[in-house]
Amino acid sequence: MLEFYLAQVVNGLIVGLIYALMAVGLSLIFSVLKIVNFAHGDCYMIGGFFSYYLATLLGFHPIAAVFVGMLGVMAVGILIHQLLLKPLYTPKVERKGEYAILMTFGIGIFLQNLAMALFGPWTKRPPDFIPGVTKLGFLFIDNNRLVVAGVGIVIMLVLLYVIGRTFIGKALRAVSQDRDAAAIVGVNPVRMNLLAFGIGVGLAGAAGALIGPVFLISPVMGILPGVKSFVIIVLGGMGSIRGAIIASILLGLVESLGSVFFLDPTRGLAYKNAFGVLLLALVLLFKPTGLFGEKFVRLE
């Protein structure tokens, strides 16, 4: 029985890592731009399709396709930012919060329907990163999931390094903490917004590209992960990168273990997606700012 629980834990960790890639991207966008990107799940989907076509049509190695796909989604993000989000920083847009919600929501619906039209509604499977299954002692782990874990950790470490140690990362944090002060010291906040949006949706794209061979891709694949990443960033504390990572792992574990420990085993999976919300409700009850949230989040 021990092996059973251990297998659940490993599974939860891997799923949590994918959540983390998405949620950290969302959190980064939120903390720098002060907007919630409702198209995040759809950027995840675009990442899945980009890397699928890179691997199947252009012959990229599936792992290389993940990184190139991520760059592709970043490019899409930059385009979206320059064309549709930039008006946010001009006095022309007065109700910035509403503008951002409507705009990103619309972009999401557009991307989903575009994918439906371009790629068709059928489920697709990107080629395996490494085919087969690895047996670790008594654990069977799909090799693709191992690659997901490995690449996911690498991307996450690079991101944490950039945010924490480099000058660019400091500037991103500076803008997130005080936009005007950052402008005062010479940081161009619009450029930082562009960078944060690009990196943020790029991370979602990487998550989608990584998950392709494991959970398959389709135009609607992003809806649920999108919702989950909102749950995660509220759970972890809006704008907190560390909070987003910890909350993601937590959610992965709770979903994995929750659905097997659930009182009525025939309904465990039916409520799987509810566990996250339950966890959220409990945490918010005791800590309304989320696990690592700041007291005040200024929406402007």
Partner: peptide, 22 residues
């Protein structure tokens, strides 16, 4: 005959499948 019910949106069935295996 034993069954479990899951939402159409679930993408990871591994936890329950592991349970079947055990």
């Amino acid at each position: 005959y034993t069954y479990i019910v899951a939402e159409r949106t679930v993408t990871d069935f591994t936890p329950q499948l592991l349970r079947f295996k055990a």
